[in-house]
Structures are given as structure tokens and as C-alpha cells.
């Protein structure tokens, strides 16, 4: 990844041009051809820097409900419980963290009823009871935008 890739990544996280020829537009800003921009983005995807280029939606504004959940999972059951949780379509993130509540996952669903049902069935399937449902009650900041250092 060179300096121009860094500039390109910083730019296309937030200011991806919603126009007919977006890659040509980006090329004009960076002094590259349209084909160069396409090649660079393609390489950045292949190298794993970019997960996806697309819309990031606000679940609440689309009528969905989201929550963060934390579960205490015995060390020897982590693999099994992980599989049960990851199968749930609305689970978008799942991490092991250094705490007694060691499995932390986010769940998005069309309604709160679906969330409650999903968590109830999860407790039954895993036979684990120490599950916290932590839906945000106030939102102060939701902003993932990484400013890349030049040449990093």
C-alpha cells in the first residue's frame, strides 16, 4: 500500500462519489486515470484492506432494532457456542473479550420481539443463562472513519 492508496482509502470511506463515473471522478481528484483507480481498488480488496464498497445503513431508520449482547461461556464450550451464535443471520459482529462475560456479539432484527425471542432460544440451545442484553439507550457517536497516515 503506497501513499496514493492511503489517500484513496481515506477518500472512499466517506466521500465515495455517487455519480455515473465514480472511478473517473476519483481519478481526477488524485491525478490518476479511471482504469488506475479501478486497479488500485481491486488490489486493495484482494489484499484484504477493503471489505466492501457499498451502502452502510442506519438500522433504526430502516425500522430495525439492534443490541449488544454479552454471554459467559465456559472455555471448553467456546467453539460450540460460537457456531450457534454465528448461525443467527442478524449477528453481524462476534468477539471474544478478556472478561468473565467473554463472548460479545451484536444482533440486528426487524423488531424487539424478534430480539427477545432470539435470545430466549439462544439460552435454551446453549443451556447458558448468563446473557446480558445491552441495547443502547443513548447514542452519542457512531462513526467509523479511519484517517490513514500517509504512506502507512
Amino acid at each position: 500500500m503506497d501513499k496514493i492508496d492511503g489517500q484513496l482509502l481515506t477518500l472512499i470511506q466517506r466521500d465515495f462519489p455517487v455519480t455515473s463515473r465514480p472511478y473517473a471522478f476519483l481519478g481526477d481528484q488524485l491525478g490518476l486515470s479511471e482504469a488506475d483507480v479501478i486497479t488500485r481498488i481491486s488490489n486493495l480488496k484482494n489484499q484484504g484492506f477493503i471489505r466492501r464498497v457499498g451502502g452502510v445503513f442506519d438500522s433504526r431508520k430502516l425500522g430495525y432494532t439492534s443490541t449488544l449482547c454479552a454471554l459467559k461461556v465456559p472455555e471448553n464450550r467456546i467453539h460450540q457456542v460460537k457456531q450457534i451464535i454465528n448461525e443467527i443471520p442478524g449477528v453481524t459482529h462476534n468477539y471474544l473479550r478478556n472478561h468473565e462475560y467473554n463472548m460479545w456479539f451484536t444482533l440486528i432484527a426487524p423488531s424487539n420481539e424478534v430480539i427477545v425471542d432470539t435470545l430466549t432460544s439462544l439460552k435454551l440451545k446453549t443451556n447458558l443463562d448468563q446473557l446480558m442484553n445491552l441495547p443502547a439507550t443513548q447514542f452519542f457517536k457512531i462513526n467509523v472513519h479511519f484517517k490513514l497516515q500517509e504512506g502507512s
Binding site: L9, R14, F57, D58, S152
Partner: peptide, 16 residues
């Protein structure tokens, strides 16, 4: 505001 942004989602560990 239905869409928070349109653009690239990065693998943040990969970018440093």
C-alpha cells in the same frame, strides 16, 4: 439518514 454513508468499509486491523 437512512444510509449513514456510502463507501468503503475497511478491515481496520489491516490498515494499521
Amino acid at each position: 439518514g437512512m444510509m449513514r454513508r456510502f463507501g468503503a468499509t475497511l478491515r481496520h486491523q489491516k490498515v494499521g
